[in-house]
Design a protein around this nucleic acid. Structure first.
Lengths: 133, 133
DNA sequence: GCCACTGTATCGCAGTATCGATACAGTGAA
DNA sequence: TTCACTGTATCGATACTGCGATACAGTGGC
């Protein structure tokens, strides 16, 4: 089994643990840190490492399996699926697309002109740039 | 009491009733359909009209009071506050701003280049335009 | 076959949120 | 003061969610 750097889990967070796990694995897959066909830690191994329940890990794995990022074989283990890297990227683009649609819908719904929405978008983009710099 | 067109409530919706009420009132206030200083239906009146509990209406009113859109006087009634129209508008702009920030953060977090994000934004904007046309 | 490892299914507990029933409290006109 | 109207506070039923304990089931090396 490969060496994985520990996940960063916050039990006190309002975000459920299984979603924290899923998101961090998704991120690593998209970033190429977790390569296709890599074997993941067993649900028990990851669970005991983080002092949580194996089912909680299983639930995270299930999420990612549904997204096509992981493939599981009972009795054998859980693996990053072959096409995962590309999939994870498109999955994340889709997430951004959804957020954009939601934003645009919210703006349209109360009659914010397209021009102002564009302006706002550019504003926030610069604001984000400032912060990161 | 003024004549208000009925709210459209869906008890089966996953969105809580009190939020449905709040959102629709917010919308009417921002749109100028509900003018400042207008008296709203009493919690009991609105509740019995929609066959729900007065407390559910009260909770919606409470939300809007916190946002400064309504002002309540026990024993007297609930009124659209004087500066509500402007407030509601800024409230909604803020909502869009928050969504934009969330979107930009999501894009940045997995390294989507600004250029592509802009492209995506324009894409979705046109897509929305198509749909509305 | 045996055994130690995989993932999975079932059950129950605890925390939380929505909403209703009901009782409480303030206001103002008669 | 009285009464009919306002909003408010309290309590409980119900549903849902996250997650743990525990038992079940498949796989492969010995």
């Amino acid at each position: 089994m490969n060496r994985h750097s520990r996940l960063h889990l916050e039990p006190a967070s309002p975000i459920p643990i299984y979603l924290q796990i899923a998101e961090q694995l998704r991120h690593r897959i998209a970033a190429g840190t977790l390569l296709p066909d890599t074997e993941l830690p067993s649900v028990r191994a990851l669970a005991s490492e983080h002092l949580i329940n194996p089912n909680t890990v299983a639930r995270a794995y299930l999420e990612l399996e549904r997204e096509g990022l992981l493939s599981k074989r009972r009795g054998t283990g859980t693996y990053v699926s072959t096409s995962a890297t590309k999939l994870a990227a498109t999955y994340r683009v889709q997430a951004v697309r959804d957020l954009l649609d939601k934003t645009i819908a919210a703006a349209a719904e109360f009659g914010l002109p397209r021009k102002q929405l564009r302006q706002l978008f550019e504003d926030r983009l610069s604001a984000a740039k400032e912060k990161s710099a």
